[in-house]
Amino acid sequence: MMKRLCIGLVCILMAAGVVSAAPEDDRQAFVNYFQKRFPNVGADAWVNGVYALDKASYEQWVQIEEFPPYELALGEGEELFNTPFANGKTYADCFPNGGVGIRQTYPYFDTGLGEVVTLELAINNCRVKNGEEPLGYKKGKIAALSGYMAYTSRGKVFDIEIPDDPRAMAAYENGKKFYYSKRGQLNFSCADCHVTNAGMQVRADKLSPALGHPTHFPVYRSKWGAMGTLHRRFDGCNKQVRAKPLPAQGDEYRNLEYFMTYMSNGLEVNGPGARK
């Protein structure tokens, strides 16, 4: 009877439903976990990362934000953004709404390309389409550009969609799997530090909570003395657990960003950020 009722794709979806909850259930559980664990953190405060958990370092950070170390990069990003390519077109021609106030919709699943498109990937796709060389994905100009585009989107609420397409669901699931899988010689998953042990101390450093992680990227990180993208941070995290990093903007990291950003849906864009 059941067999006759479910055919083709419907059948697959029903089978998948048994092992994996819907993304929205995942997100609700994720948010509930953090709110239960840190009842004093306001629902909007997760965008502040580790500073949401620690008053002393929060006050230091607020002072830093008064003369933000990413200001130079913002200027550079704005100039790059407004400088036409050799063919006379600009970044604005590649993006909805002229590229202004759109950070909250990235990454998205492009059903035409069949893959996750992050803001940085879209920036390079735009360059290549207009006959320009692609930029490096971890630091420098790409971070200045995506930083500026984030800045024009501050206050908008993340709204990552997972379209009704099995490939989009697979990308989300792969990102989720990456997030929870232990890797490297030290055998840590992303979740080991930023979910299970969020708020705990590794020596003098407090582990930041996963909820709200992508909202403030790209960041100016004091440790780098420069701007860096989210994928640059992935690179560093993977090295810290002695795993060989995977390529920035490769499938794995884009899917990871897709999952992470979906978890932060409903939070405000506050990038670029300043971090220790």
């Binding site: 995942d26 899988s181 055998n187």
Partner: peptide, 23 residues
């Protein structure tokens, strides 16, 4: 030894990660 251990880790995590998901 490390290469073999990493492959074993990949095989193990292919299922084990599900036990860590926040529900």
């Amino acid at each position: 030894f490390q290469g073999d251990a990493a492959v074993a880790q990949a095989k193990h995590e292919a299922e084990a990660w599900k036990g860590a998901v926040i529900r």
